[in-house]
């Protein structure tokens, strides 16, 4: 029994990846990364330039999402956040469909900016607020955006970590694989193995994720929640 929610654990892991002074952007449908970025901004990263799509206080553009995408294509984003309907051991993301793309079992929302931002943002944090073998698969059905690219492809950026309610994976660029970095407190290796669709063998050394501190939880539940509510009112109502 813990005194914090899985979302608070994920937001705290995300906050620790944000560096002061860098440009950090959060896309659509991402209240948990928005919480993590603002937690960092309100603590160790006061000089970070924070961009949150649909947030009236953190949207420094005047000409639609095109201006943001052009800004990102020029390589101006240091840290971004992506997810996938499926994520595989190589860090490949599937946002297209589960099953046949023309007659899918599940139609996913589509890639939107993901196939560009996964290359052009210098570091990308992958996140899921649920963790199951249906999501973390050995091989995605369709590659919306690959975890790594050959040298002939212009790719300044790529995956950094993947954070879930159970664990943190770190992307190993040499092995081109997600490697278990830490398991959250109270989560057993057996549970993690059961809920993950790819083998975790060869990941023996993973430690335990540092849980949120009392100060981090206090900020998440007060100032961060109030700020996130400006873009995600329904999420902030539900978070308790």
């Amino acid at each position: 029994m813990s005194d914090y929610t899985p979302e608070e654990m994920i937001a705290t892991v995300i906050a620790r990846e944000v560096r002061d002074g860098e440009t950090v952007a959060v896309g659509t449908l991402a209240p948990v990364p928005a919480s993590g970025v603002l937690l960092a901004h309100f603590t160790h990263a006061p000089r970070a330039r924070v961009i949150i799509i649909n947030h009236p206080d953190y949207w420094p553009f005047r000409y639609g999402s095109k201006e943001f995408y052009d800004f990102a294509q020029r390589g101006n984003i240091d840290l971004f956040f992506l997810s996938g309907g499926q994520i595989d051991r190589h860090g490949n993301l599937n946002l297209i469909a589960v099953g046949d793309a023309r007659n899918p079992r599940t139609r996913l929302p589509g890639g939107a900016g993901a196939p560009m931002l996964y290359y052009q943002a210098k570091r990308v944090v992958l996140f899921r607020t649920d963790h199951s073998p249906r999501i973390f698969v050995d091989r995605v059905d369709h590659v919306t955006s690959p975890g790594s690219s050959p040298p002939s492809v212009v790719r300044p950026g790529g995956p950094l970590i993947c954070v879930t309610p159970l664990c943190v994976f770190r992307f190993d660029p040499a092995a081109r694989m997600l490697v278990l970095a830490s398991v959250h407190p109270g989560v057993s290796r057996e549970e993690l193995a059961q809920q993950t669709g790819f083998s975790l063998k060869g990941n023996p050394g993973a430690g335990v994720t540092d849980p949120p501190t009392a100060a981090e939880l206090h900020l998440l539940r007060t100032r961060v929640r109030e700020a996130v509510a400006r873009a995600y009112p329904r999420y902030a109502e539900g978070a308790s």
């Binding site: 294509q73 297209i96 793309a101 890639g111 196939p115 560009m116 931002l117 996964y118 290359y119 052009q120 369709h142 590659v143 919306t144 955006s145 690959p146 690219s149 050959p150 492809v153 212009v154 790719r155």
Partner: peptide, 21 residues
């Protein structure tokens, strides 16, 4: 468009073309 190269869009969207810069 930046990025993209090596994704399955090249298979699913034949109108997308990859060319040498």
């Amino acid at each position: 468009v930046a990025g993209h190269v090596g994704s399955d869009y090249e298979r699913l969207r034949p109108e997308f073309k990859v060319i040498p810069n």
